[in-house]
Amino acid sequence: MTPTSPASLHIVCPHCDAVNRLPPARLREQPTCGKCGKDLFTGAPVDLSSARFLKHIERTDIPVLVDFWAPWCGPCRTMMPFYAQAAQTLEPAFRVVKVNTEASQDIATRLAIRSIPTLALFQNGMEVARQPGAVDANTIVSWARSKAQRLA
């Protein structure tokens, strides 16, 4: 552990939404939730509703990458497999989630999501970057990594 790295990270469970404390060195050791016992990282985007969204972006200490999408959106459906592929590459350094803007219109309105698909990157509960439009997996990974700020 370097002098500037945190002693532990808070990671919200993608299954039960419990907040877990985890030493940074354990991120790559397939950690499990202390409450439900399931994997904290699944290598797939976590589908979040409005009720779960805020907890995940506010309580997770690693960057949270969000895909705002809708089922009727052709470009969104085209990008889905690329986003899933990017999740396999980005986890566990990132939490990768998706929000259906039709089912969670309040979040889309609150964040002024004007087009879909839109990628947004959150750190420490704050949006730090946004990218509209469908892109491939390599672009998603490169964009997320370039926009993520190092944990202080």
Rank of each mutant, 00 (worst) to 15 (best):
T2S: 09
T4K: 02
T4Q: 04
P6G: 11
S8P: 11
S8Q: 14
I11G: 10
P14T: 01
V19S: 13
V19K: 11
N20I: 12
N20V: 12
P23E: 10
R26H: 15
E29N: 10
G34F: 10
K35N: 15
C36Y: 13
G37C: 13
L40P: 01
L40T: 04
T42M: 10
T42A: 12
G43W: 00
G43E: 04
A44K: 10
V46Y: 01
D47W: 01
D47A: 14
L48Q: 06
L48M: 06
S49N: 08
S49M: 10
R52L: 12
F53Q: 00
K55Y: 02
K55N: 06
I57C: 08
R59H: 15
T60M: 15
P63D: 14
V66E: 02
F68W: 09
F68M: 12
W69L: 04
W69G: 01
W69P: 03
A70T: 12
P71E: 14
W72F: 13
C73A: 13
P75T: 01
C76H: 10
R77F: 10
T78F: 15
T78S: 13
T78C: 06
M80Y: 00
M80S: 12
P81N: 03
F82G: 07
F82L: 02
Y83E: 03
A84G: 07
A84Y: 02
Q85G: 01
A86W: 08
A87E: 11
Q88I: 00
T89A: 13
T89L: 04
T89M: 07
L90A: 07
L90N: 04
E91G: 11
E91M: 13
E91L: 10
A93P: 01
R95N: 05
V97A: 08
V97P: 07
V97M: 02
V99S: 01
T101E: 06
E102L: 07
E102A: 11
A103D: 12
S104C: 07
Q105P: 05
A108P: 03
A108G: 05
A108C: 10
T109V: 14
T109A: 14
T109G: 07
R110I: 00
L111Q: 05
A112V: 13
R114V: 01
R114G: 01
R114E: 02
I116K: 03
T118L: 04
A120C: 12
L121E: 04
L121N: 07
F122T: 05
F122G: 02
Q123C: 04
N124I: 03
G125H: 11
E127R: 00
V128G: 06
V128H: 04
R130V: 02
P132V: 12
A137I: 00
N138P: 06
T139N: 04
T139H: 04
I140H: 05
V141T: 03
A144Y: 13
S146G: 15
K147T: 09
K147H: 11
A148E: 09
Q149M: 14
R150L: 13
L151P: 05
